[in-house]
């Protein structure tokens, strides 16, 4: 499966991936979703009310309402312009916008987000890294395990030990283990 995306690959923010004068597959749907979403946000902004004070120019509604209206107008113009552009020939959603790799990784990221709290950082991340690296690199298990677990331990040490970020421990008794090491180093009483 060869993916031809060299032209306008969108990897730099300064040169976004759209084409001038042509419409990519799915662009119209995206534009329509943006337009409808903006209209919904205008409606939602209108509903903002200040319970503790006046609702005039200084209302918490003022700026949200103004910006969502700008969003809706801009999205409307984009949609209108896009609709009149010819479609890019030779591109399909499956090949150029959402190839299998991207879908798999996206699903894995969502699964990661769901599993993080109940299962905990270490097991979830280990599984994520091993599967993702195995899938993308297609190399031996030994190499995959070494690279993924090695980098995971490094990340864990930096965030959990050095920066004391309390990432959900889940099923791993992290705090107990750390305390064990701590008393070990301090010479347990």
């Amino acid at each position: 499966m060869k993916i031809e995306t060299e032209h306008h690959d969108g990897t730099s923010d300064a040169t976004p991936g759209g084409y001038e004068g042509q419409r990519r597959p799915g662009e119209l749907i995206f534009g329509a979703v943006m337009f409808l979403g903006s209209l919904f946000l205008v409606f939602s902004a209108w509903g903002i009310e200040n319970t503790f004070g006046p609702n005039g120019l200084s209302s918490p509604r003022a700026i949200p309402l103004a910006t969502t209206i700008v969003m809706a107008i801009a999205a409307g113009v984009i949609l209108f312009k896009d609709a009149r552009l010819p479609r890019v020939t030779g591109e399909t959603v499956m090949k150029d916008i959402l190839p299998v790799n991207v879908i798999i990784l996206a699903v894995m990221l969502v699964a990661y987000g769901v599993a993080l709290k109940p299962i905990g950082f270490l097991p979830t991340s280990a599984v994520f890294l091993i599967i993702a690296i195995k899938l993308l690199a297609r190399r031996g298990w030994g190499w995959t395990l070494l690279v993924s677990l090695g980098s995971l331990i490094l990340i864990w040490i930096v965030f959990r030990i050095v920066f004391t970020v309390l990432i959900p421990a889940g099923i791993v008794p992290e705090a107990e283990v750390i305390q064990m090491f701590r008393s070990l180093f301090q010479g347990a009483p």
Binding site: L166, P173, A175, E176, I178, Q179
Partner: peptide, 11 residues
Amino acid sequence: GAADYPSKEIQ
């Protein structure tokens, strides 16, 4: 329990 509290880090 409390006898050897705290046995791990406290948040």
